[in-house]
Design a protein around this nucleic acid. Structure first.
Length: 735
DNA sequence: AGTCCCCCCATTTTT
DNA sequence: TGGGGGGACT
C-alpha cells in the first residue's frame, strides 16, 4: 500500500515520530509544533503501513473536545471511520471498561456517575450525619481531600493514620463517603479511574485480554496525567505493547489538580528504550513571539529543554501597555480590537486572556460600552446547570428508583410540601433499614409513619414518578425528556423565578430536549434500542462525563475572552495578555514557592504562545480588587522578556503629557505616577494631582461621561475616593 | 415555604 | 465589590 500521503507534509522530526520503529516514544512537542498531527498520522501509519488492526489501537486524551477532534482528523486522514478503535478521555475509556466489567470491578450493574456537584452534596449530608463541624471542616475541603487521595490511587484504608485532627477527620469522612457510594452504587470521577486501575490489578485475565488487544497505545497531553492515570497506562501497556506519549513539560499547568509533570521523567526511567523526539519547529507564531516565550521559560529549572523556532519572519514587536487602572486597561484593549476590526480583520481571531475570571468584568463592561460582540468561555456548563440537573434527576429516577442523589435533588422540586422535617424522618428510616430513600418513602406511606399531610405529599410524589414511568415506556429518548419536562411542573417552577434568568432556564430545558434528540451512539459499539431504558442510561452517563459546551452561538464574529488555563490548545492571530502584575499574575497564592511560581511562568508561556501574529501585554498601576484599590507592580514575567522584543505603547496624548509629581494614594504608599490618559474635553488626565475647595488634595483615578454630565473619580488624601461632576466641582490642577 | 438579610469569601478546571 | 450560602424571620 502506498503510505507516502501519511508522511508527506511532515517535517523530519514529525516523520521520525510517526514512523518510529521503537515500541516506546516520548514526543516532546512544543506549542504549535503539530502534536495532534503527529498522533493522528501515527495512527494512520500503524494501520496503513504496519497493518495494525484498528481494534488494536487505543488513543487517550483529557477532554472530550480533544477526543472528538482527534477522532475526526483520523477519519479524515484515513478516508473512513474505524469503529473498533478506542479514542476517548481517560474517564470515558475507564467508564466503558467498568460498564463491561462491572462485576469484576466490584460494582453493581446499574452504578451511576456522581459529578462534582452531586459529590459535594453527598459529602455535606455525610458530614451532617457525622456531626462534623462545617465551619472547622468545610465540605469543600473534604471533597478536595478525597479527590486528591484518589488521584494518588489511595483509598481511606491505605492511608496511614496520624493522630492529628486534620487527617483523622478527613479519613473519617473519606471512609463514610466510600461506604455511602458503595451502598448507593455511585462512583465519582476519581473513582472511575481508581476502579479501572484496580480492575487490572485484581483481574489478571481481564488485564491480559486488553493487553492482548491494545497493541498500540497513544496518549495526548501526557504532562497532565496524574499518578493513577499513569499507573493505569503503564499496567495496560505491559511489557510488549507500544506506547507513544506526547506532551510538553513547559505547558504543564494543572499541577494543582494532581497532574504530575514528573511522569515525563518517569517515562524515561520506566522505558529505557524509548525514542525521544523533540518537535521544536513552530507553525503558529512569529519569530518575535517565540523568542519571548523561549526566554521567559528559560527561567524555569529542571526543564527537559526545548527551543521553539520558525521559518517565519520576526513579525511585529510585542506591545506593552502600562495602564493607569483596570478600566484604562480594558479601554485600551477594546480600542486596539476596534482598530484591528476596522482594518478588515475578524473579531473571532482575537482573544483577551486573563489569569482569573474576576478580571473579565471590566473587559465586558468596556466591550458592552462600545457594543462589540464578545464570547466568554468558562462558567456554568450545560449539563451542570441547575434546571438541567433537575430534569436529569427525574430521568435518573426513572432508570433507578433507588438513586438517592436524584431523590434528594428533586423530591421537593418543584415544592410539593415535603420539607426538611419530613426528609429527616425518611432519611433516618432509610439509614436504619439500610435501604434507599425511595424504599423508605414506600415504607412510611404503608406503615403510616408520617403525619397524614406529609404522607399524602410523599405518596403523590411517588405516584408522579410511577406515572411518568408508565407514560414513557414507548417513547423515544427526546420524547421521554420532553414528557418529563412537561409533566413535572419544572417549567412553571423555574418560570416563577422571573426575569431574564427564568427565560434562560426554560430555554435550556428546551435545549435539553434537542440534545437528547441529537444524542448519538457513535462511540458505543452496542446497538441500542432508542426507546429502551438502557439508551436513556447511556445518555445520562454521557451527560455526566461530558459537561457540554457552555455556549451555543459559535457562529457570531465575537472577541474571545477566557482564562489562560482555558486558552491552552487554542490559537489566535491577535492576543492580549492582561493584568500582568505581581500578585495577580503570578498569582499571590502561587508565588511564594518555586513550584507554584514556575507553574505560573508556564502559564505565561502558554499565553504568549497562543499568539500567531501580534501580542499585546498590559498591566495596570492600580487595580480594584475585592472592593479596594491596590497599587500594583508590573509582573516579573514582563522583565523576563527581552526588552528588544517589546515596544512600549505611548498613546498620542503623551506628547503633551503633563508632568506628575510624587503622589500619594490612599494606601499610604508613595510612588511615581506615569498615567497619560486624558479626560476628554478637559485639561485633566488620569493620575493627575488636583485640589478641591472642600475635600483638599487628591489624584484623578477615573472618568466617565461627557459634556455637562462628565464625572471624575478623585482619590482624596484625607477623605477617600469620590465621584465629582466636573461642571460643579471646581477642581484646580496642581503642577 | 419562601423571603430577606447578613456574613463570608475571593486562582486556575476537567472528568 | 459582588455573589453565594445559610440562618432567621414572616
Amino acid at each position: 500500500m502506498d503510505v507516502s500521503h501519511i508522511l508527506d507534509n511532515l517535517n523530519d522530526e514529525q516523520r521520525k515520530a510517526v514512523a518510529s520503529p521503537s515500541p516506546h516514544q516520548l514526543v516532546l512537542a512544543g506549542a504549535g509544533s503539530g502534536k495532534t498531527r503527529v498522533l493522528v498520522h501515527r495512527i494512520a501509519w500503524l494501520i496503513e503501513a504496519e497493518q495494525a488492526s484498528p481494534f488494536s489501537i487505543l488513543a487517550v486524551t483529557f477532554t472530550n473536545k480533544a477526543a472528538r477532534e482527534m477522532r475526526g482528523r483520523i477519519d479524515e486522514l484515513l478516508g473512513q471511520h474505524h469503529g473498533g478503535m478506542w479514542v476517548g478521555t481517560f474517564h470515558g475509556l475507564a467508564h466503558r471498561l467498568l460498564r463491561t466489567h462491572w462485576q469484576e470491578a466490584g460494582l453493581v450493574q446499574d452504578f451511576h456517575i456522581l459529578d462534582s456537584d452531586d459529590q459535594l452534596r453527598l459529602i455535606k449530608r455525610i458530614n451532617r450525619s457525622l456531626r462534623i463541624d462545617d465551619d472547622k471542616w468545610p465540605a469543600k475541603q473534604c471533597q478536595w481531600y478525597i479527590n486528591s487521595q484518589k488521584d494518588e490511587g489511595l483509598r481511606a484504608a491505605n492511608i496511614d493514620h496520624f493522630e492529628d485532627d486534620y487527617t483523622k477527620t478527613m479519613l473519617q469522612v473519606y471512609a463514610a463517603y466510600e461506604e455511602a457510594c458503595n451502598r448507593g452504587g455511585m462512583i465519582d470521577f476519581g473513582e472511575i479511574l481508581l476502579r479501572a486501575h484496580e480492575l487490572w490489578l485484581k483481574n489478571p485475565q481481564v488485564l491480559a485480554h486488553y493487553q492482548k488487544r491494545f497493541k498500540h497505545i497513544l496518549v495526548d497531553e501526557f504532562q497532565d496525567t496524574n499518578a493513577i492515570q499513569y499507573a493505569w497506562l503503564r499496567v495496560l501497556s505491559g511489557a510488549d505493547n507500544s506506547l507513544m506519549v506526547v506532551g510538553d513539560d513547559d505547558q504543564s499547568i494543572y499541577g494543582w489538580r494532581g497532574a504530575r509533570i514528573e511522569n515525563i521523567q518517569q517515562f524515561n526511567v520506566d522505558f529505557l528504550d524509548a525514542d525521544i523526539i523533540r518537535l521544536e519547529q513552530n507553525y503558529r507564531s512569529t519569530s518575535t513571539i517565540l523568542k519571548a516565550a523561549n526566554k521567559l521559560i528559560e527561567n524555569n529549572q529542571g526543564r527537559l529543554g526545548k527551543n521553539l523556532w520558525t521559518e517565519d519572519g520576526d513579525g511585529e514587536q510585542i506591545s506593552l501597555y502600562e495602564a493607569f487602572n483596570e478600566q484604562d486597561e480594558a479601554r485600551f484593549v477594546v480600542d486596539r480590537i476596534q482598530d484591528w476590526f476596522n482594518s478588515g480583520n475578524r473579531r473571532i481571531d482575537s482573544a483577551i486572556l486573563y489569569r482569573s475570571n474576576a478580571q473579565s468584568r471590566e473587559l465586558e463592561d468596556a466591550l458592552l460600552r462600545v457594543g462589540m460582540p464578545y464570547r466568554i468561555y468558562g462558567g456554568h456548563r450545560f449539563y451542570e446547570r441547575l434546571e438541567i440537573k433537575n430534569a436529569l434527576a427525574y430521568l435518573r429516577l426513572l432508570v433507578n428508583r433507588d438513586d438517592d442523589t436524584a431523590m434528594e435533588r428533586i423530591i421537593n422540586v418543584p415544592t410539593r410540601g415535603i420539607g426538611g422535617r419530613t426528609m429527616e424522618n425518611i432519611r433516618s428510616i432509610a439509614r436504619d433499614d439500610a435501604s434507599s430513600l425511595w424504599k423508605a418513602c414506600a415504607k412510611c406511606v404503608n406503615e403510616s409513619l408520617l403525619s397524614s399531610r406529609a404522607a399524602n405529599a410523599v405518596l403523590a410524589f411517588m405516584e408522579l414518578i410511577d406515572n411518568l414511568n408508565d407514560g414513557c415506556d414507548e417513547l423515544e429518548l427526546h420524547e421521554k425528556v420532553a414528557h418529563i419536562i412537561n409533566n413535572t411542573g419544572l417549567i412553571q417552577h423555574h418560570e416563577k423565578e422571573g426575569g431574564e434568568k427564568a427565560r434562560a432556564r426554560v430555554e435550556n430545558l428546551d435545549e435539553l430536549i434537542s440534545a437528547a434528540g441529537n444524542f448519538d451512539d457513535a462511540e458505543l459499539d452496542e446497538e441500542f434500542d432508542i426507546k429502551s431504558y438502557a439508551f436513556l442510561s447511556a445518555f445520562l452517563d454521557q451527560a455526566a462525563l461530558d459537561a457540554g459546551e457552555s455556549q451555543a452561538s459559535e457562529s457570531e464574529d465575537a472577541v474571545q475572552l477566557m482564562t489562560l488555563h482555558s486558552a491552552k490548545g487554542l490559537e489566535f492571530q491577535l492576543v492580549f495578555l492582561v493584568g500582568l502584575e505581581e500578585g495577580l499574575f503570578p498569582h499571590k497564592m502561587s508565588m511564594d514557592n518555586i513550584t507554584g511560581l514556575e507553574e505560573e511562568r508556564r502559564l505565561c508561556y502558554v499565553g504568549i504562545t497562543r499568539a500567531e501574529k501580534k501580542l499585546y501585554i498590559s498591566h495596570a498601576e492600580s487595580r480594584r480588587m475585592h472592593g479596594d484599590v491596590n497599587l500594583c507592580r508590573p509582573s516579573r514575567f514582563i522583565n523576563e522578556i527581552p526588552s528588544e522584543l517589546i515596544d512600549e505603547v505611548r498613546l498620542k496624548s503623551s506628547v503633551s503629557r503633563p508632568s506628575f509629581g510624587t503622589t500619594k494614594l490612599g494606601t499610604g504608599l508613595t510612588r511615581q505616577m506615569s498615567g497619560n490618559i486624558e479626560v476628554p474635553q478637559t485639561e485633566l488626565s488620569l493620575g493627575q494631582r488636583v485640589i478641591h475647595g472642600k475635600f483638599g488634595e487628591g489624584v484623578i483615578l477615573n472618568y466617565e461621561g461627557q459634556g455637562s454630565s462628565a464625572r471624575v473619580q478623585v482619590s482624596f488624601d484625607d477623605v477617600g475616593s469620590k465621584w465629582l461632576v466636573l461642571s460643579y466641582a471646581k477642581l484646580e490642577v496642581l503642577a
